[in-house]
Structure formats: structure tokens, C-alpha cells
Computed example of a mutant assay.
Amino acid sequence: MSATLRAGLIGLGAMGRNHARVLNSLDGVDLVAIMDPAPNAAGPQGVPVVPDLDQLLAKRLDYAVVACPTALHEEVGLRLAAAGVHALIEKPLAPSVQAAAKLADAFEQAGLVGAVGHIERYNPSLQSLRSRLEAGELGDMYQVVTRRQGPFPGRIADVGVVMDLATHDIDLTAWVTGRDYVNVAARTVSRSGRPHEDMVSAVAALTDGLVANHLVNWLSPFKERSTVITGERGSFIADTLTADLTFYANAAMSTEWEALRAFRGVAEGDMIRYAIPKREPLLVEHERFRDAVEGKESDIVTMRQGMRTVEVAEAVLRSAKDGSAVEVNGHR
């Protein structure tokens, strides 16, 4: 492998253009070409755009970033694996668990680095939150509540809000807490006239008794990206729009009423907003993947992890369709 990695990009949609911007300035990487079938597609100055995958593969790529529609991830990813090209595939990894498993198998069998673009893992607020949870600053964890709301993004056409947005919350919840999903119960609605759901409310049980609630929609005229984890010593609130992390500590609530002493209540204590370094999550994601391709120890989202997120998302959709709680088979 050359000292400078030769990278390619597949897809110049809204997310693809962001990938192109980062790839074009990433240390140790040369963005040699972009594939997009649109006749007027244009990338960064000096980077050629080719209309098909054969022409992109002819550029002798070391790795590729896949930012095309989710429905094409399996086909494109398998072609890359067969060609010996490492790949970072945008989330969700695939539209089904079966397709995600094929991709994970193909990259593992070829000895290639395969990763999934779950960008929230690299948000500074969540990075700090995970470190603090691992250090035991919250004590026992009781509940995770995520809220991800905003207007409909015109870039999305092939999946609903569960696969597009809720997969962020599913992945970050499992990653931040270190717990696996056991079962989910969900309800979805479609109010925008599109064939896919545009709102979901889900309740999930994770291992060790942790409870999670996810509210996700494309129907709110404001943007909200909030993760609240409540536990023994208080609550952490991560705002991934501003990359802020705040801690609300419990204060002891004493009572002289003997009949109520058995109930351990809490009261408002100190509030701390942490000062944390704030680097662009997409840049950090690309740096971690580049390092992995170079054979260095690196914190990437593996395709097996991406597959488990798709498995939970499928369970959410199945629960909403059947009106019952659904077991998640992949929990350990």
C-alpha cells in the first residue's frame, strides 16, 4: 500500500458532498475520483467524476466511501470487497439484516477493513459522555431518552425515519452505554404523504435492566438532537447539535415522615456544563477509518456493529406493524 492512500467516493448527494470536502483535505489521503451517474455531478476542483463503478475501480483505489442510496449499499459494497477495496459505508449499512450480514461476511473473508458511517459516535459530547460513564461517574444507569426531531430532509427518498434517523440513536445508545438491545415496542405514523414512516416512538429494554425511549420524526419545524441518561447520581444531557454535555447532580432529599423514608427521592443538585474540545465529527470519523486502513489501532464502527443496528431497526418496524413487542435476536 502506498504512503498516500488512494480514495474514491461513491455518491455526490448532500452527505456525499460533505465526504468529498473532508476527503479532499485529509492528511495522507488522495481523493482520486468520484462516482456519480448524474450528468452534471461535480466534485472538488481537480477531482474527476466518473459515471460508473468500473471506471472508479480502474483508479486503483485503496479504499472507498459509499454515500449512495441505502438500497444500493449491498451491491456496491460487494463489488468493492471483490475488488479488494476497503470501504466506509454510510449508515445504515444496508436495508436489511440479510444484506448487512452479506457485507460483513464479504469484507471479513477478504481481510478488508469495513466500517459504517455512524457519525454520532464521533460527536464530542457523546465521546465525553461515554468516557464519563465508563469511569462510573453516573453510577448505575437507569434510563436513556433520545429525541431527534426536525423538518423533512429532501435528500431522503428510499427509506423512512427509522432507517435514516433512528439508526443514529440505536447505535449511539448501545455504544455509549455498552449494553445490547433485548426487545423493542414501537409505533410509527406517516403524515407527510410519503410511502415511508415519518415519525416513530419506541421503548426498548437493554441488557442489565436498562430502559431506552426514542422519539424520532421529520415533522417538527425545529431541530432537536438530545440524549439524556439518568442514573444513580443524576442525569447527563448531551446535545449533539451544539456538542455540549451537561450533568445534573442529585441532591439528597431528607424527610422526617417515617412512612416515606423507604422511598429514596432526589432533589436538584449542582449543574455542570463541561468544557470539551470540539472537532468536526465527520473529520474524526475519516481520520479513524484512514488509520484503520493503514493497520493502526482505531475506533471504527465495524460492519458487525452496523448489522446489529439494522437488526434493532428492523425489530422497531416489525413491532410497529404487528403492534407487539419484538425480541432482538442479536443481543448477547
Results as ranks from 00 to 15, higher is better:
residue 218 W to G: 04
residue 63 Y to F: 15
residue 269 G to S: 06
residue 159 V to K: 06
residue 253 M to D: 12
residue 328 V to R: 02
residue 242 T to Q: 08
residue 323 G to H: 11
residue 109 Q to M: 08
residue 168 H to C: 09
residue 110 A to I: 04
residue 1 M to T: 15
residue 89 I to C: 07
residue 319 S to K: 01
residue 80 L to E: 09
residue 232 E to T: 02
residue 280 E to P: 07
residue 297 E to R: 15
residue 135 A to R: 14
residue 33 A to Y: 13
residue 172 L to T: 10
residue 242 T to L: 13
residue 156 I to L: 08
residue 112 L to N: 01
residue 237 I to M: 12
residue 234 G to W: 08
residue 54 D to W: 06
residue 186 A to I: 13
residue 12 L to P: 06
residue 149 Q to K: 11
residue 294 E to A: 10
residue 191 R to K: 09
residue 163 M to W: 13
residue 225 R to T: 14
residue 302 T to E: 04
residue 212 A to D: 05
residue 84 G to A: 03
residue 81 A to S: 15
residue 13 G to T: 10
residue 214 H to R: 04
residue 261 R to N: 00
residue 183 N to M: 07
residue 194 R to V: 06
residue 72 L to I: 02
residue 35 M to D: 10
residue 17 R to E: 13
residue 205 A to P: 05
residue 172 L to G: 01
residue 180 D to M: 09
residue 157 A to D: 15
residue 186 A to M: 07
residue 110 A to G: 01
residue 288 R to W: 02
residue 313 A to R: 08
residue 5 L to Y: 11
residue 203 V to L: 08
residue 77 G to K: 03
residue 243 A to P: 01
residue 210 L to A: 02
residue 87 A to L: 11
residue 298 S to C: 09
residue 205 A to G: 14
residue 2 S to Q: 14
residue 257 W to K: 07
residue 168 H to M: 12
residue 50 V to N: 04
residue 116 V to C: 11
residue 222 F to A: 06
residue 188 T to V: 12
residue 275 A to Y: 06
residue 232 E to P: 05
residue 201 S to A: 14
residue 117 G to F: 09
residue 186 A to K: 06
residue 165 L to S: 15
residue 306 G to F: 01
residue 59 K to Q: 15
residue 158 D to C: 09
residue 327 E to D: 06
residue 66 V to R: 03
residue 46 G to R: 00
residue 252 A to I: 14
residue 312 V to P: 04
residue 182 V to D: 12
residue 267 A to H: 00
residue 133 L to C: 03
residue 231 G to Y: 00
residue 257 W to H: 11
residue 90 E to F: 11
residue 206 L to V: 12
residue 189 V to D: 07
residue 138 L to D: 04
residue 206 L to N: 05
residue 270 D to R: 00
residue 118 H to T: 11
residue 242 T to M: 06
residue 161 V to R: 00
residue 212 A to K: 08
residue 81 A to E: 14
residue 124 P to L: 13
residue 179 R to V: 03
residue 130 R to W: 02
residue 51 P to I: 01
residue 309 T to E: 13
residue 331 H to C: 08
residue 71 A to D: 10
residue 171 D to G: 02
residue 303 M to E: 12
residue 216 V to L: 02
residue 332 R to E: 08
residue 15 M to E: 08
residue 160 G to L: 13
residue 290 R to T: 00
residue 57 L to T: 06
residue 238 A to K: 04
residue 33 A to I: 07
residue 251 A to C: 13
residue 142 Y to L: 00
residue 268 E to H: 05
residue 320 A to D: 15
residue 154 G to L: 14
residue 71 A to Y: 08
residue 34 I to Q: 03
residue 207 T to N: 03
residue 193 G to S: 03
residue 290 R to V: 00
residue 79 R to W: 09
residue 108 E to F: 11
residue 207 T to D: 04
residue 206 L to S: 14
